[in-house]
């Protein structure tokens, strides 16, 4: 592949949308009420839409007749580059919204910066995506505030979720090798520089939600390098089931 770094860079962004979309897809029909069910499905649909744009571009870069579905369904677990945060399970609604919130704030900052990429296709995707993501961020931060500053029970549950997910936030700001090369080429975003704004925004919302900002200094990483949590294999078993059971067919 001529442009392997760009290919890997795109997957590094796209895999987050794919895996988070898949997690939200599990919830469709099981939400706490119809309105949130519909809203979460909307977010899932947006994320899959983004995934497709990125993968179609990546497939084009890769050449050799590769398709978006080959990239989505036919890689080994070690080849998926999503962060650990997005693969965390839907333990309860606090985790669902907490995961969404902690990702959305990052995602919005990333899309803002990606609009200044020197790669036109990525700019076009970022411009479309940023509208969707600002809606997601508003939705998830509103819910974090509602659950944080709701009842005693909801405050406890939301805090539990934020504490549980916090160790996965730092990975968002780590640069992979492909990131570094793409940053120096003017294509990629230096995500390490997003951390300050991220912590500021997240702290503001948590404060408004009467939640404590976790103090833990211990973080987890590995997703970006393809070393995932034990949850990932099961998620992929579902995701890949049809393509693995019936190879080389059209659907």
């Amino acid at each position: 592949m001529k442009n392997e770094n760009l290919y890997n860079y795109i997957l590094g962004i796209a895999d987050n949308s794919l895996i988070l979309g898949q997690r939200l897809g599990e919830l469709c029909g099981h939400g706490p009420n119809l309105e949130t069910d519909i809203a979460l499905t909307n977010i899932s649909l947006d994320l899959f839409g983004q995934t497709r744009s990125y993968y179609q571009y990546a497939a084009q870069i890769s050449g050799g007749g590769k398709t978006e579905d080959d990239i989505a369904f036919l890689r080994m677990e070690r080849q998926y580059k999503n962060v650990l945060l997005v693969e965390q399970p839907n333990a309860h609604f606090g985790f669902v919204l907490g995961r969404q919130f902690l990702f959305d704030v990052y995602h919005l900052l990333l899309m803002e910066k990606l609009q200044s990429s020197s790669d036109e296709t990525l700019v076009a995707i970022a411009k479309k995506t940023i509208k969707e993501v600002s809606y997601h961020e508003r939705f998830s931060s509103d819910w974090v505030k509602r659950l944080g500053d709701g009842t005693d029970e909801s405050n406890k549950k939301m805090q539990e979720a934020i504490d549980g997910l916090w160790p996965y936030t730092d990975e968002l700001f780590q640069l992979t090798e492909a990131d570094r090369i793409m940053v120096s080429d003017g294509i990629g975003v230096d995500v390490s520089k997003l951390k300050k704004d991220y912590l500021k925004r997240v702290s503001e919302i948590l404060k408004e939600a009467t939640l404590k900002i976790p103090e833990s200094k211990y973080f987890q990483k590995g997703g970006k390098e393809g070393i995932h949590s034990e949850h990932m294999g099961y998620l992929l078993a579902d995701l890949q089931y049809m393509q693995r059971s019936y190879p080389n067919m059209k659907w």
């Binding site: 897809g25 119809l34 069910d37 839409g49 995934t51 497709r52 089931y241 393509q243």
Partner: peptide, 25 residues
Amino acid sequence: ITRAPSLRRKVALLAKVQDEAGHGL
């Protein structure tokens, strides 16, 4: 939804099931 065979089919199925939620509403 989690096992749809292609991204295109997954999106269409999600949207369909979401429509049903809308009908319910």
